[in-house]
C-alpha cells in the first residue's frame, strides 16, 4: 500500500516536470501534495498531514496560480497601419487584431499590443519587450536577424509610386532595410536601372516626395494606400502606382520562441483552411 503510494508520487513528480503548460504542472503539483498528505496520514503523522494539506494543497497552488496569471501575456509590438492594426477613437481595430485576439485566446494568453514607430521597431528587434511583431509585417520588411517569420495570411503587392509624366532615369526612395538583396527578391523588376535613395521611414519618403526631391518611392500596398492620402493633391493627380512585386503579410516571432512560432503557424494554417481569415480579409479589404 505504502509502496504503491510512493510509486504514484514518483510518477506524479515526473509528470509535473514533463508538462508543457505551467498551469497543468501547478495543478499536478497540488495533486502531488494531496497524495503526500495521505501518505503522512497513513504512516501515523496526522499533524504533518493536516499542515501539508492546508499549505501544500491550498496555499501553494493558489499563489502559483496568482503569480501565473501575470506571466500569461503575449506581448506584441506593432507599427500602426490602417486596415491591418490601428487605433480609432482610442479603440484598437484591424484585421491583425482579430487574428491575434483569436490566436491568444486559443493559447490562453492575454494579448498586449504596444504601438511603436518604424525606427523604434528596428531597434527593438531581439529585445526583451516583445514576443511578436505585427502591423503589416512581411519578410524583408525588417532586418531579419533575431526574428523568424510566420506563415503568411495575406498576399499583397509591392508598389511603386512615381510621376506618370517622368521619362528616363528616376530617383526612387526605398526603405533602408531594402538596401541589401531583399528588394531584388521581392521584385520582378531590375532595380539597378533606378537611382535609389535610402530612407529610414515612410514619413520621410512622403515628405521628400511632396517637396519634389525624389521622383517616387516604393512601399507595400497596405502602407501605400494610406500614404496616398498624405501626398499633396495636385501631385497625387499626376502620380501613378505601379505594381513591381509581391509581398506576403505575416507576423514575426522573436527567435528563441520556437514553440510560439509553431503554435502560430498551426493556427494560421488551420484558420486559413476553415476560411476564417478570408472572411476577416473581405471585411477589411473590400
Amino acid at each position: 500500500m505504502l509502496i504503491l503510494f510512493t510509486f504514484l508520487l514518483l510518477g506524479l513528480s515526473v509528470a509535473v516536470l514533463l508538462q508543457d503548460r505551467l498551469l497543468n504542472a501547478v495543478i499536478l503539483l497540488g495533486v502531488f501534495s494531496l497524495l503526500s498528505s495521505v501518505v503522512y496520514f497513513v504512516v501515523g503523522a496526522p499533524d504533518v498531514a493536516v499542515t501539508e494539506g492546508a499549505i501544500g494543497v491550498a496555499f501553494v497552488t493558489f499563489i502559483y496560480v496568482l503569480a501565473l496569471s501575470d506571466q500569461g501575456k503575449l506581448h506584441v509590438i506593432a507599427e500602426e497601419v490602417p486596415s491591418f492594426l490601428f487605433q480609432e477613437k482610442g479603440e484598437l481595430r484591424g484585421v491583425e487584431l482579430e487574428i491575434l485576439r483569436d490566436f491568444s485566446e486559443e493559447i490562453d494568453l492575454d494579448l498586449e499590443i504596444e504601438f511603436v514607430d518604424h525606427q523604434e521597431l528596428t531597434s527593438l528587434i531581439g529585445g526583451r519587450r516583445a514576443d511578436m511583431i505585427a502591423g503589416a509585417y512581411f519578410p524583408g520588411h525588417l532586418p531579419s536577424d533575431g526574428l523568424s517569420d510566420s506563415r503568411s495570411y495575406h498576399q499583397g503587392q509591392l508598389t511603386k509610386i512615381h510621376l506618370s509624366s517622368q521619362e528616363g532615369e528616376e530617383e526612387i526612395g526605398v526603405l533602408r532595410e531594402f538596401e541589401s538583396e531583399e528588394l531584388t527578391e521581392l521584385t520582378e523588376e531590375d532595380f539597378a536601372s533606378f537611382d535609389s535613395t535610402y530612407f529610414n521611414s515612410l514619413d520621410e519618403m512622403i515628405r521628400e516626395y511632396n517637396e519634389g526631391r525624389i521622383d517616387g518611392f516604393v512601399a507595400d500596398s497596405g502602407r501605400m494606400s494610406t500614404a496616398l492620402y498624405r501626398i499633396n493633391s495636385p501631385l497625387r493627380e499626376e502620380s501613378e502606382i505601379v505594381t513591381i512585386g509581391k509581398v506576403e503579410y505575416g507576423f514575426a516571432v522573436s527567435s528563441g520562441e520556437e514553440e510560439l512560432l509553431e503554435q502560430l503557424n498551426d493556427y494560421l494554417l488551420e484558420s486559413a483552411r476553415s476560411g476564417k481569415i478570408d472572411d476577416l480579409l473581405s471585411d477589411y479589404f473590400r
Binding site: L2, L22, V26, L29, V43, V48, L68
Partner: peptide, 23 residues
C-alpha cells in the same frame, strides 16, 4: 517557474523521507 516547481517537489520529497525513514 518550472525550477520553483521542482524545488517544491524536492521539499515535499525530503519531508516524506524524514517521515518514512522512521516508519
Amino acid at each position: 517557474l518550472m525550477k520553483l516547481l521542482s524545488l517544491n517537489i524536492v521539499n515535499t520529497a525530503t519531508i516524506l523521507f524524514f517521515v518514512l525513514v522512521v516508519y
